[in-house]
């Protein structure tokens, strides 16, 4: 797996926000953090799925690149969500590592070493159709925290 750092450390947002295209807040279903739905009683993969469904994502089979669709991958260990990543239109994936940096990775299923231990495996893929004529960034551009770029239409 090829991994490339694409930002500085930023505790202002996390992977669940970044997968939703939001670099302005920390998404977490509890603990005085932002969540697009009322906090769920149980924090499991289904709870994360429900949050992304509010942005128009639906479950899909895998992370294969599909032109015209944007995909995200939800990582979990024993149904406990640990991480999320988003796919660019060139097939490259982008992840935010906790409160650390953003990275790009060419594959989504094989995080190395400690990262794999912390994040587990992909438990769910989701996708949504890109608006016609939309051209999302092919790679992560240098961005200032809090910028609106990469934020999907209608996101908070």
């Amino acid at each position: 797996m090829t991994i490339r750092n694409t930002s500085k450390k930023d505790p202002g947002y996390n992977c669940f926000a970044w997968a939703a295209g939001d670099d302005t807040k920390w998404w977490e279903p509890g603990g005085r953090k932002y969540w697009p739905l009322p906090y769920p009683r149980k924090v499991d993969v289904a709870a994360i799925e429900a949050a992304y469904a509010t942005l128009g994502y639906i479950a899909c089979a895998d992370g294969t690149l599909e032109p015209g669709f944007e995909k995200i991958a939800i990582f979990a260990i024993a149904d406990q969500p640990k991480h999320a990543a988003r796919q660019f239109q060139n097939g490259v994936w982008t992840s935010k590592l906790g409160s650390d940096e953003d990275i790009e990775h060419d594959r989504v299923a094989e995080f190395p070493g400690l990262v794999a231990i912390r994040y587990g495996r992909v438990a769910r893929f989701m996708k949504r159709a890109l608006p016609q004529g939309a051209s999302p960034p092919q790679v992560t551009p240098p961005h200032a925290p809090g910028s609106a770029q990469n934020r999907p239409p209608g996101s908070p």
């Binding site: 996390n14 603990g31 969500p81 991480h83 990262v115 994040y119």
Partner: peptide, 12 residues
């Protein structure tokens, strides 16, 4: 130890 964790609840 926890900077890579995605959920604050785990950090706590």
């Amino acid at each position: 130890d926890t900077s890579m964790l995605s959920l604050s609840s785990e950090k706590y």
